[in-house]
């Protein structure tokens, strides 16, 4: 099953109660945060807590991501030294502005993987772009290393960097979002949207998720487990589309076995992009229940 990154649940790395439950909320990824959510005085204890959580909790299929402190901070190297031996799936690197940032992290990972007998290149990198410079360099960042499997936009820091206010409508982020999506798509990686801060505004979250889905984002950061289901629902393929996708793939497989290049469904010609889109829909549908389609399937 292809990994989806519809939701990435942020958990403060110093909150044991929240960390212990972090795998059970159904988020595709859990991000254990050592950066903004953790006060300077707690950086050290948070690292060790996150390490213990990674070692001892069963995350099942949930992706384990740790957001470390930025390269420019004094915590960056210690974060990696402590965390890497407990084998997170990915490292979220904040404040990435240029491909060199990723290359620095990647070379440290090379060394730590070797030291701790971890498969070389297995720990992925998710650069977080949250400065104007980072946005402009998005494409080179996205393709800076084979370890980069997703890039993400940080709305709060980016608007601060631009000296503007983050609004509910999000018009100020439109350029950055589309630019980063294109950079990610061009590099064949996932693109993750920023958080939606008002946890009680389900409708606002739903609207924003619809918007970023339309733009091409793979998913969104969430700061409360209650937001997960809202985002997942937006990304749920429509049952009718799933049914049609099943028919397309079935017809495609038949056509291939008969040596036909082109075929039609309901009188419409089906070509490669249609097949590809159908495959994406079916991959996404794997993550959902379709009781209404049970008789059909």
């Amino acid at each position: 099953m292809m990994r989806l990154r519809r939701t990435c649940l942020y958990i403060p790395g110093n909150n044991a109660a929240m960390l212990q439950h972090s795998p059970v909320h159904g988020a595709d990824s859990v991000l254990m945060d050592l950066e903004d959510a953790v006060a300077v005085s707690e950086k050290d204890s948070a690292r060790f807590l996150v390490r213990a959580v990674l070692k001892n909790l069963n995350f099942g299929k949930t992706e384990k991501v740790v957001r470390i402190n930025p390269i420019s901070s004094p915590f960056f190297k210690d974060d990696l030294e402590i965390i890497i031996p407990s084998k997170p799936d990915s490292i979220r690197l904040p404040k990435v502005e240029q491909e060199e940032d990723v290359i620095i992290l990647s070379s440290i990972l090379d060394a730590l993987e070797k030291k701790h007998d971890i498969e070389s290149g297995s720990i992925e990198i998710h650069p977080l772009i949250e400065t104007a410079r980072g946005v402009e360099n998005a494409f080179s960042i996205a393709r800076s290393s084979p370890r980069v499997t997703a890039i993400s936009i940080g709305g709060q820091d980016l608007t601060a960097d631009m000296g503007i206010k983050k609004t509910d409508e999000g018009e100020e982020l439109h350029y950055a979002r589309t630019r980063i999506v294109m950079a990610g798509k061009a590099s064949g990686i996932d693109v993750l949207d920023t958080v939606f801060a008002d946890v009680n505004d389900e409708e606002g979250l739903r609207k924003e998720t619809m918007m970023i889905k339309t733009l091409g984002f793979s998913g969104k950061a969430v700061i409360n487990p209650r937001q997960i289901i809202v985002v997942h629902k937006v990304f749920k393929p429509d049952p009718k589309d799933v049914q049609r996708a099943k028919r397309i793939i079935k017809a495609y497989e038949e056509a291939v076995s008969q040596g036909k290049g082109v075929f039609s469904i309901d009188g419409k010609m089906v070509d490669a992009p249609v097949v590809k889109r159908a495959q994406i829909i079916l991959n996404q549908a794997e993550y959902y229940e379709y009781p209404e389609l049970m008789e059909v399937s």
């Binding site: 439950h21 059970v24 909320h25 159904g26 409360n224 487990p225 209650r226 289901i229």
Partner: peptide
């Protein structure tokens, strides 16, 4: 609003 209860309920 307890996220664990909500996860169970869902």
């Amino acid at each position: 609003k307890n996220p664990i209860d909500l996860a169970i309920a869902q």
